[in-house]
Design a protein around this nucleic acid. Structure first.
Length: 199
DNA sequence: AAACACTACAACCGCAGTCGA
DNA sequence: TTCGACTGCGGTTGTAGTGTT
């Protein structure tokens, strides 16, 4: 990455060094997340708060999953993107260990860059969707709300079953949706089968 | 073996929302 | 009520690594 250097405010820019990572990790373990604007003063890092937050959230935070997006995760991303669009942070909440940046990067690489997935990707996608569906059809009760367990928040969340354009009834999250008219839907398998990421 | 294409990842920027003085 | 600082989010860009032709 050429061209990095020092910002107008004097903050260092560009790739982080292991030493900087260590300093940031130490700071966060000491003071907790948040208060990013004071990181530079308190930790000795010559980085903007913004840069520190990004580094922590996307790279240093414990529990982050490294490596490729799995077919199961891809399935979740596709479904949730159909639901929420480019709400990467919202989608990321339902993919433990993944950041909005991961998901955003993945989406752009696989689904946006060339307008549509390559033939190879298409085949891969078809395979993975078959795999994750396991042949199950959607079985949400169209009349009653459904509760699902969200491992991220460690609590039950309500979903509303809602019909899709192809007349399937799928659960919808209350959370993050302002009105029922906004809705599309989420496959129930997503909440049942795919929570078992088993990765 | 070289050139090119694709993918993964890291990091920056700008904008909008929130909150406290 | 207003304003500025801070934070979070989405968009974008750049580089390195890997695969393909």
């Amino acid at each position: 990455m050429a061209g990095w250097g020092v910002s107008e405010q004097g903050w260092k820019k560009g790739p982080w060094t292991p030493e900087e990572d260590k300093l940031l990790t130490k700071y966060v373990s000491q003071y907790g997340e948040g208060r990013w604007s004071s990181v530079s003063r308190s930790s000795g890092l010559n980085r903007s708060g913004k840069s520190c937050r990004l580094r922590w959230v996307n790279y240093l935070r414990p529990g982050l999953k490294r490596g490729r997006i799995t077919p199961q995760e891809e399935g979740i991303i596709i479904e949730l993107h159909a639901l929420w669009g480019n709400k990467w942070s919202t989608i990321a909440r339902y993919l433990p260990g993944r950041t909005d940046n991961d998901i955003k990067n993945y989406w752009r690489t696989h689904f946006r860059t060339r307008g549509k997935p390559s033939e190879k990707q298409e085949k891969k996608k078809n395979f993975s969707q078959k795999e994750q569906n396991g042949g199950n059809s959607i079985q949400a009760d169209p009349m009653g709300d459904v509760n699902i367990f969200n491992p991220q928040s460690n609590k039950q969340e309500s979903v509303i079953p809602y019909p899709t354009v192809d007349n399937q009834f799928l659960p919808m999250m209350y959370q993050d949706i302002t009105s029922r008219s906004d809705i599309i839907a989420v496959d129930e398998y997503l909440w049942g089968g795919l929570w078992n990421l088993d990765i």
